[in-house]
Deep mutational scan, measured.
Amino acid sequence: MTEYKLVVVGAGGVGKSALTIQLIQNHFVDEYDPTIEDSYRKQVVIDGETCLLDILDTAGQEEYSAMRDQYMRTGEGFLCVFAINNTKSFEDIHHYREQIKRVKDSEDVPMVLVGNKCDLPSRTVDTKQAQDLARSYGIPFIETSAKTRQGVDDAFYTLVREIRKHKEKMSKDGKKKKKKSKTKCVIM
């Protein structure tokens, strides 16, 4: 069974824990209790493949930012979460993405942009803004509501699919490099 290491990042209060708990335990946590770091595991079937999701729910508070490099190193894919009623959390996505790329030393890291709290009427981040940002990053965008469960499975499952595509691409690139290195030079 394939294991996928997913990391949920975003500013404090955007609903990272609520999304994760909704996926794992099928219930909505409405009281806000700032996370330092929590880890969850769940076995699911995605596109006919049974897999184990190892999900790291991270601290959004700035005082825990020193811990970010460590979990970013171990993560295979990242859910970059903002709240649709919090423009600052949307603007912060850029910083999370840049930090992930720096730590992973790669421009090509599996990510999904997630606009959470889409059940709320007080939207300050337009869907088109988020779609445009995701398009500019070359990553999928999904709106979710941890409260109603809308888009929750889709967000995590899409990230797994992005990781699969990335692994497939990397193995193809690896095979191309191996083929090239088999060419021999004969000096007579």
Rank of each mutant, 00 (worst) to 15 (best):
L52Y: 15
L19S: 14
E49Q: 12
F28K: 00
L6I: 13
K5P: 08
G13H: 13
Q61A: 14
N26M: 09
I21M: 09
G15C: 00
T58Y: 02
T20A: 09
R41V: 09
V14Q: 11
L53F: 12
D38Y: 04
K5W: 01
L6R: 02
N26C: 08
R41E: 09
R41L: 09
K16H: 01
I21Y: 15
F28P: 03
Y32R: 03
A59P: 04
R41N: 08
V29I: 11
V29N: 06
V44F: 08
C51L: 12
D47L: 05
G60T: 03
D57K: 00
E31W: 12
T20G: 05
L23M: 13
F28E: 01
D57A: 01
Y64N: 05
K42T: 09
V44R: 13
I36L: 04
I36M: 05
V29L: 09
R41A: 09
S39E: 08
A59W: 01
Y64L: 05
A11D: 09
G12E: 15
A59V: 02
V45K: 14
Y32D: 04
D33Q: 04
T58D: 00
G12Q: 12
Q43L: 07
T58H: 00
G12N: 08
E49V: 11
D38W: 00
A11V: 13
I46C: 11
E3V: 11
D57F: 02
L23F: 13
V14K: 07
A18D: 06
D57P: 02
D30Q: 11
Q25Y: 09
L19Y: 07
T20S: 10
L6G: 03
A18I: 07
V29T: 06
A59E: 02
V7S: 07
A59N: 04
L53S: 12
E31S: 06
L6Y: 05
L53M: 10
E63A: 05
D33R: 00
H27M: 15
Y40H: 02
D47Y: 06
K5Q: 07
G10A: 07
A59F: 01
L23K: 14
N26L: 07
P34E: 05
Y4V: 12
F28H: 05
